[in-house]
Design a protein around this nucleic acid. Structure first.
Lengths: 219, 219
DNA sequence: ACGTGAATACTTGTATACAATTATACAAGT
DNA sequence: ACTTGTATAATTGTATACAAGTATTCACGT
């Protein structure tokens, strides 16, 4: 399920990160030829990587190459609106369907996150946060949750990392993860759903606070 | 935003439909060479089509080719669980952000749907149903909703079509679409959200009834 | 100065060739 | 009968060649 060994995949991951972290700013135009030359490979794997980025809606064909779209703060807020509504469900399913070993795997990410929070390493915190959520999607018992939530969660990694640079926010996030893993370990889908819903809600607040956005209501 | 002209895209659409409708049953193995020969094209576009199908999780690399996964009834039920939670939000946004022309475009699909319901043409009903929902995603004001909901809605088209073969269910669905477009035209996000949420809920019931599934609760 | 049109360069889509990996079949030894 | 090793076949990953379409440039006429 998770092999990223081919050149195409490597290039995809690299470009995805570069786009999400602004190395290639919005509006920049990427062409197969230039990328293949700068990366020292042929057009074929570059082309496949661009196809994947296009499917993720991070770039767009603009006639003279692929234009970088990237992720706006507004996109991120909308992603949280969606996550608030379905991550709890995924967590509830996970509480019921995951094996004990899988729950231990999730627990491990919380412990590592605690370690990195004590060190103030926001990059590593973000990594464990990513793993925590992705494992819950993975063990939710249906690929539908995984496939739907993974791209959303991946796309906001830059914003998540920035939030984690504030100690108080990193502490809050960790505390919420602890409540979630506790609910999962006690096999309580209701508690897991509630804890995850609250986590998503708070994470959105933290994002809004970090970037001084009006949280507001949807309508 | 919507150009599907290249061979890759044509092959993708054809294979996607064939997989979703069971022409290629679950477990069947597709190889680039065989497909390229049977379609009379080179491996390159076939390869790209397979990459897209893999990203949509409809096929999976199994070492000796790509194995067809397809969509199970359980997947479809999970997709409805997700749609129930976020389609209402998309509709609410649409009520606020869509232009009058765009709303007319949506209304048009309801009128065509009514025509096809009177004829009992389930294929055409499904097509207009698809268009109705996809336009709402599209005019929801954020690509995030579109990108998230489109693959989910596409994947269950076979189940939607089967449901629409029963006159009573087609009538119900049409009536619900009418309520939604009415709310959209009155620019009422709350009514639009409520009407869409109810529609998704009922559509799930109709699916469950059609295939004799326990609707149950999530947990 | 401005529009028009042709030539040019750029970019992608597709086909094909080749290399490398992996699966398969089959034979030999225990 | 079962494993092991080897040869063979199948399959994909990557590079490259070529064609077609599209944008750009620049010269020319007005």
């Amino acid at each position: 399920m998770y092999k990223n060994v081919s050149l195409s995949d490597q290039i995809f991951e690299r470009l995805e990160e570069d786009i999400l972290f602004g190395v290639y700013p919005k509006g920049e135009i990427l062409t197969e030829l230039k990328l293949s030359e700068s990366l020292g490979v042929s057009r074929t794997p570059v082309r496949e990587a661009l196809k994947m980025l296009e499917q993720e809606h991070l770039i767009e064909d603009c006639g003279k190459g692929m234009m970088v779209l990237g992720i706006t703060l507004e996109d991120a807020m909308n992603i949280y609106e969606i996550r608030k509504r379905i991550e709890g469900l995924a967590a509830a399913r996970c509480a019921v369907t995951a094996t004990d070993e899988q729950l231990q795997e999730i627990k491990e990410t919380v412990e590592l996150q605690e370690f990195y929070v004590s060190r103030g390493d926001s990059e590593k915190i973000k990594e464990q946060d990513t793993l925590f959520h992705e494992l819950i999607y993975k063990y939710s018992g249906s690929a539908v949750f995984y496939d739907t939530l993974i791209p959303l969660h991946r796309k906001i990694q830059k914003f998540r990392k920035t939030s984690m640079e504030q100690k108080s926010k990193a502490d809050q996030s960790l505390a919420e993860h602890k409540r979630i893993i506790e609910a999962l370990l006690s096999r309580d889908p209701f508690k897991a759903e509630a804890a995850m819903d609250e986590h998503a809600e708070h994470a959105q607040f933290r994002l809004a606070d970090t970037f001084n956005v009006e949280t507001g209501k949807d309508h």
